Computed example of a mutant assay.
Amino acid sequence: MSTRPLRPDLQRIADWITPDASVLDLGCGDGELLAWLARHKHTRNYGVEIDVDSVTACVEKGINVIHSDLESGLTQFEDGSFDFVVLSLTIQAMHNVEGILREMLRVGRTGLVTFPNFGYWENRWQIMIGRMPVSETIPYQWYNTPNIHFCTLYDFDGLLGKLGMRNTGRVVLNEGHEITVLPNLRGSLAVVRFEKV
C-alpha cells in the first residue's frame, strides 16, 4: 500500500475530517484520499466514480465504490447518510453545479469542495493578453478542457449564499502553499468547507 503523501489540497480536506467519521467522496478517482482516511483516521468510506479503471483501482484498495455518473444525482444515498461529502477538482466540469451542491448537503452534514480559482492573477493576465488560461490548476487548452464552469472564490461564496449554505472554512493554495494575503488574486486553488445555514 502506498505511503506517499497526499496532494496538498487533499491533505487540507483530510485535516478537516474527524476520526471515525463517515465520508462520501464524489469523483473519488483511484481512492487515494479514502485509502488515506481509512488508514489514518479510521473513517467509514464510500466513493462514487465514473471511470472504470479508477473504480478497479478503488476495489483493489478495498474501498467501497459505486460506478456512477454524478450528473444523475445521489439518489442511491439516504438523507443524512454521511458526516462529510467530498468533491475534489470536479465541480468545474459538472453541468448542474447547484444540484450537486444541494445533493451533497442532503446526504451529508458537511461538504468539502476543491476548485481552480479563476480569479488567480496568472489567469487574469492570460485573458488580458488575449489567451485562455492554462496553468497548473487549469492544465487544458480551450478546445480539450473538461471544465465548463469557471469561478472565483467570491463567486463560489455567492452561490453558497443563494443556496442557503455557508462557507465554514477555506484554504487557498498556490503550488501547494497556503495563501492568506489577497487569496482571490494570489491563490490558484480553493479548498472550501460548507454547511447549511
Rank of each mutant, 00 (worst) to 15 (best):
E71F: 00
A38T: 11
N174E: 06
V52F: 13
R4S: 13
D15V: 01
F156K: 03
V65P: 01
D79L: 10
N45V: 03
V86I: 14
R106H: 10
Q76R: 14
V191Y: 10
Q141T: 08
S88K: 02
W125I: 08
V86D: 00
R102L: 12
G161L: 02
H42G: 05
H177A: 13
L37C: 02
S135M: 08
V134I: 12
Q92S: 14
C151G: 12
N167E: 10
V97T: 15
D53W: 05
M165I: 10
Q141E: 07
A93G: 09
T18I: 14
Q92E: 14
E49S: 05
W125N: 09
I50Q: 11
N167V: 03
A21R: 04
K61P: 04
A57F: 12
G164V: 03
E49N: 04
G47Q: 04
I127R: 15
M94D: 08
V192S: 13
I138E: 13
S135Y: 08
R131I: 00
R109L: 10
K162F: 03
K61Q: 14
H67C: 10
T75C: 11
P19L: 01
T18F: 06
S88A: 15
G47P: 07
C28G: 05
V48Q: 02
E98Y: 07
Q141K: 13
S72L: 15
P139M: 04
G27N: 05
D51N: 15
I63Y: 04
N174L: 11
T114K: 05
R131F: 03
T180M: 07
N174R: 14
P146C: 10
G169Q: 03
P19H: 03
L153A: 09
V171Q: 09
R102T: 03
T152P: 01
T90K: 15
I138D: 05
L89Q: 15
L33S: 02
G62Q: 07
G73I: 13
R166C: 00
I148M: 13
I13H: 01
L10T: 01
L33T: 01
E71T: 02
G158I: 02
V107L: 13
H149L: 10
P19G: 04
R109G: 07
S135L: 06
T56I: 09
G29P: 06
H40A: 03
V107C: 14
P116M: 08
F115W: 06
E136H: 14
G80N: 14
E103K: 07
L89C: 09
M165K: 00
D53L: 13
S81C: 13
L26Q: 06
T56Q: 08
V191A: 10
E32S: 15
P8D: 05
S2H: 09
A35S: 12
C28P: 06
K162H: 08
F194D: 05
T152M: 02
M132P: 02
I138G: 01
L101E: 11
P183G: 14
F150W: 12
M128P: 00
V52T: 12
V172K: 01
A190Q: 00
V23M: 06
F84G: 04
R44G: 00
C58V: 04
P8E: 08
L160W: 00
I179Y: 00
M132C: 05
D157Q: 11
N45E: 14
Q11M: 09
D83Q: 14
V23S: 09
G111C: 12
R124Y: 08
G108Y: 01
N64E: 11
M128N: 12
S68P: 02
F115A: 02
P146Y: 08
C151I: 00
W125Y: 15
S2T: 09
